[in-house]
Design a protein around this nucleic acid. Structure first.
Lengths: 316, 316
DNA sequence: CCGATTTACTTGACGCAGTCAACTATTAGA
DNA sequence: TCTAATAGTTGACTGCGTCAAGTAAATCGG
């Protein structure tokens, strides 16, 4: 994540800290349980971890191993020496640096690792097997979330991808927009209801030739969306653009608007129009940058607030 | 969780297993990092874990500690002897069993534990502090989910609670109902849209005297809901009853229907009616048990399927 | 290009976390 | 009442992992 150090972090709440500590204690025990299973093998847990890394990554040096697994350099050295004595690994001194060598499992090493790997696999399979599949998905999603949030270095390879809407999306978008604008601007539940209504109508009267929606997904989670609906032969309307706060700064908003413009052009619309509110400055900048022009402004009272609505048009 | 061993679990997917294993490797490292911080103190990680348990729970015996922390009995014995030598703990032989004794921290023990506890607290606080508050919440929620799913023994103290709808709920309910019926019965996205429309209208024309919604929450997550809307002076309509698969068997569906009936009676309605489909047998059983009678049945084609709609009435 | 510093890895020495098995004292069960 | 199980203790031991000193190679600063 690059989106850290935002201004909204006061001293973390004590309940949250206690919850994290409780989880750490819990997972310490959990890992201890899983390790007991491996205890039967000829290798220690740490040895197994080293073998795992060697089996799954190429070109590792001793220092890499020590750093990534959090091990003492001397200890790594000894482990590798033991593996070498057992002919489980081979080392090749780097051409570029005679101090370092890359370590690779030999076929014998792979053979030694295979049963370890299988045991670990089976153990996790047994763990998952206790849960119904829907809960398995939730478990793994939650794990991924934890990992991504804690692991600063884990930038996703694909920053985001766009896909068409599918079942579950319109509810999710309704919820997120409702919550975001409630949180940021104090809008009441009628805004969420408006989003629900717009999306319900989009689905009900969906005309694939003239209308379209895009969902931005990051790490399997919906982080943004936008819709284009037909107002007339000549005019298309862009609706419900939003990007999750956690995914801002990646250019997703700009990209979504570009998709809309491209689609509207390709379908032969003459104008792309949209309605927004003046307080949504981030969105306005995107619209301006894309070439939209403000055509109309009028105050209105909606969502429990006094607002200024704006219409923006883009000639295609 | 008691809801395990449901018929829907085939052999777990390999991707899921790999994701769990990746998480285990990641968290092994994470815990290792956190432990390094404690390394400065006079106590080992395991000693610190024992002190933590002693500080937070009363009446523990040596066996309790060994079991809960996954430690060897001999090792626990030695640890306790060391603590006793340092006057950190006191033991009191149980009146009921002269073999056992309960272990308690002495004031000196609490003093020794305090800095450890503070270090751990501060370390976690620093970890959380890197994240904006919204992400902190997500992290903790995900951790709680992981813990609850993996920890069989962790039945929530409060099985569920009911509360009024709030911002974000209608989107969530839309999503979950859409996804559930898509998964279980193959209904298409128009069902999700229908839910969105119903809920949008509920909010827009909400009349608190005559209408109401209930959200069932379990461990902070929405696991069910129901709504009562006014059809006429005499007739109220129950809508959108659903309970998450993971929360079935707790009587939530029955309870939600009872709330509706109680509300409708209190408001002086003469009839509570509802529309459902014959394939939704679980719901039908709840309606029947609550005294509803089937008044009408007719086939219809909706949500991409041939269905049989049913009207049920309850005289209040 | 040279000396100083850093980096990659090795090695000896060692402590103590954690295991295993044998043993005592007490309780529970048949 | 005798046997089996449980709670806890202790001796003996293994080996995981740490620490510090050392070597060889690479890099840096002038």
């Amino acid at each position: 994540m690059t989106i850290h150090h935002q201004p909204d972090n006061a001293a973390p709440n004590k309940d949250l800290i206690d919850a994290v500590r409780a989880f750490n204690r819990f997972y310490t025990r959990q890992i201890g349980l899983l390790d007991e299973g491996l205890l039967k093998s000829a290798f220690s847990l740490t040895e197994a971890r080293v073998l795992y890394e060697l089996a799954h990554r190429d070109g590792l040096t001793a220092t890499d191993l020590g750093r990534d697994l959090g091990l003492d350099a001397g200890y790594v050295s000894r482990l590798l020496k033991k593996f070498e004595r057992l002919h489980l690994i081979s080392r090749a001194t780097l051409a570029s640096d005679a101090r370092q060598s890359t370590i690779a499992l030999t076929p014998a090493g792979r053979n030694a690792f295979a049963p370890l790997n299988k045991d670990s696999h089976d153990q996790v399979a047994a763990l998952l097997d206790r849960l119904p599949t829907s809960e398995q998905d939730r478990l793994v999603n939650s794990m991924r979330t934890v990992q991504r949030l804690l692991d600063d270095g884990a930038e996703p390879k694909i920053p985001y991808l766009l896909r068409p809407p599918q079942v579950g999306d319109i509810g999710w978008i309704t919820r997120r927009q409702g919550m975001l604008y409630a949180q940021d601007y104090g809008w009441d539940e009628t805004y969420e209801a408006l989003v629900a209504e717009i999306l319900a109508n989009f689905v009900k009267s969906y005309d694939p030739k003239w209308e379209r929606g895009w969902i931005a997904e990051r790490e399997g989670e919906v982080v943004g969306s936008v819709f284009v609906v037909r107002k007339s032969d000549q005019v298309a309307k862009l609706r419900l653009l939003y990007v999750e706060p956690s995914a801002r700064g990646l250019g997703i908003g700009k990209r979504l608007v570009e998709e809309c413009i491209g689609f509207a052009r390709a379908r032969g619309y003459k104008t792309l129009t949209l309605w927004t509110n003046d307080i949504l400055t981030a969105a306005r900048h995107i619209y301006q940058a894309a070439g939209f022009r403000l055509t109309e402004e009028e105050p209105h009272h909606s969502f429990g607030k006094d607002l200024v609505g704006q219409n923006w048009d883009l000639d295609l």
